[in-house]
Design a protein around this nucleic acid. Structure first.
Length: 129
DNA sequence: CTCCTGACTCAGC
DNA sequence: GGCTGAGCCAGGA
């Protein structure tokens, strides 16, 4: 999708009556489902939740991801360009890319190599279609 | 309570 | 084709 320049419309898989969980909860839930060695973008998660226009909230949610009881792999979540935009928010600015490298993900110039290949779209992977 | 900022994204110029 | 502006929702001051 990220490599899709075409207007690929994401189907709002927003579960009905899911308002029980806060927006953040949903973000954390999806983020924790990211397989090792894979990454996703804020927009993908936001789109999956139905709020693609508010990708900021996804990143903002990540702000509290670390102090959660079950930690969220925020290092697997990057912006739509695959750039480690949030690395500066980690314990150390290098921790994010270090973690990604451990996931066999190549990081060059703060950007994930073969991002399109590593990309993990919840709207597709988690699609019940 | 009001204003501002923020780990993004899209549209416009 | 790169830069700038505006929109998005939520939380903090």
């Amino acid at each position: 999708m990220a490599n899709k320049k075409s207007s690929e419309k994401l189907k709002p898989l927003l579960p009905s009556g899911n308002k029980d969980s806060s927006f953040f909860e949903q973000v954390y839930d999806v983020a924790r489902q990211i397989p090792k060695g894979r990454v996703t973008s804020y927009g993908a998660i936001a789109a999956y939740l139905g709020t693609k226009m508010s990708a900021r909230m996804v990143g903002w949610a990540m702000n509290g991801a670390f102090h959660l009881n079950p930690p969220v792999p925020a290092h697997r979540v990057v912006n739509r360009n695959g750039m480690l935009s949030g690395k500066m928010h980690f314990a150390t600015p290098t921790q994010m890319e270090e973690l990604l490298k451990k996931e066999k993900i190549k990081v060059v110039d703060d950007t994930i190599v073969d991002f399109d290949k590593k990309f993990w779209d919840p709207a597709i992977e988690l699609s019940l279609d």
